[in-house]
Design a protein around this nucleic acid. Structure first.
Length: 261
DNA sequence: AACAGACTCAACCGCCTGGGG
DNA sequence: CCCCCAGGCGGTTGAGTCTGT
């Protein structure tokens, strides 16, 4: 019945790690490096399960772990990322250097979860005030479906610049429209080729980034070319303005599509 | 000072995924 | 394909600590 345990639990230590065990594990990994967790305890002389060793190292012993309280900046970032990614703690932790997924998960469960719940009641918490944009209806993304798994994407759709030259529209209105279209047309990992065919070739910008996650694309990629090629924001001459634009875009996603990514 | 309840967070559990054979 | 294994992940647990009475 059920899955067999990752290792024999007989004769193994459980519960809190002692300083001695920490020292053995740290020294072993310093010399031999991470990986091969299952065999590590035996080779290092630890009476622990391999998984336990891995967890202890990743969440506590790693030299780059940041100790201390979560700052307000980090807190805001966590909230925004959670808004975009849901309970994808490892992804969120990847954006917070020195923080672990376990730490962020605990912090969320004990602090932010409640805060956000309270905030939602008043509709003011975790909403960008710097980039207020009116809600644009979107049947595809306005559902209340909460994704619990990351969805990979290989393509992100932006309208061709020529589409921007519509008469009788202010620049701001147009910018909103373009942003809305961009969000609406994020092409989630397509399981059938049919949906993909619906897109006209000249309307599709393939970032050629492979199977990176939407979050990675939004947060990591060089946004400069995207901004300049697609006229979504003010022209970028450097990474700083591109970064500002990227944050605007994230704010936009955050504002319009709470929990839908 | 003593107790109970609330809170925190390290550790564990079991499932999922991807790679190799 | 299928199976196995290692590693990774999110949810849950429970011991220790804090706080209020």
């Amino acid at each position: 019945m059920g899955r067999s345990p990752c290792c024999s639990k007989e004769g193994l230590n459980r519960g809190a790690w002692t300083g001695h065990e920490d020292k053995i594990l740290t020294e072993y990994i310093t010399v031999h490096g991470e990986g091969r967790w299952r065999n590590l305890p035996k080779r290092a002389g630890l009476k622990r399960c391999g998984k336990s060793c891995r967890l202890r190292w990743l969440n506590y012993l790693r030299p780059d772990i940041k100790r201390g309280n979560i700052t307000s900046d980090e807190e805001e970032l966590i909230i925004r990322l959670h808004n975009l990614l849901g309970n994808r703690w490892s992804l969120i932790a990847g954006r917070l250097p020195g923080r672990t997924d376990n730490e962020i998960k605990n912090y969320w469960n004990t602090n932010l979860g409640k805060k956000v719940k309270e905030g939602n009641k008043t509709s003011t918490f975790c909403r960008s005030t710097q980039n207020p944009m009116p809600h644009l209806p979107n049947p595809k993304l306005d559902s209340h479906l909460v994704r619990t798994k990351a969805t990979k994407c290989t393509k992100l759709f932006f309208p061709h610049p020529s589409m921007l030259q519509l008469p009788n529209k202010s620049q701001e209105e147009e910018k909103e429209k373009v942003l809305a279209d961009a969000v609406m047309n994020v092409q989630m990992e397509l399981t059938t080729g049919d949906q993909e065919k619906q897109l006209s070739a000249d309307m599709l910008t393939d970032f050629n980034v492979g199977d990176i996650c939407l979050s990675d694309l939004l947060l990591d990629s060089d946004f400069t070319n995207i901004c300049n090629n697609h006229q979504l924001f003010s022209p970028c001459s450097d990474q700083t303005s591109a970064s500002n634009n990227l944050h605007s875009f994230i704010s936009f996603l955050d504002t319009h599509h709470n929990n839908d990514f």
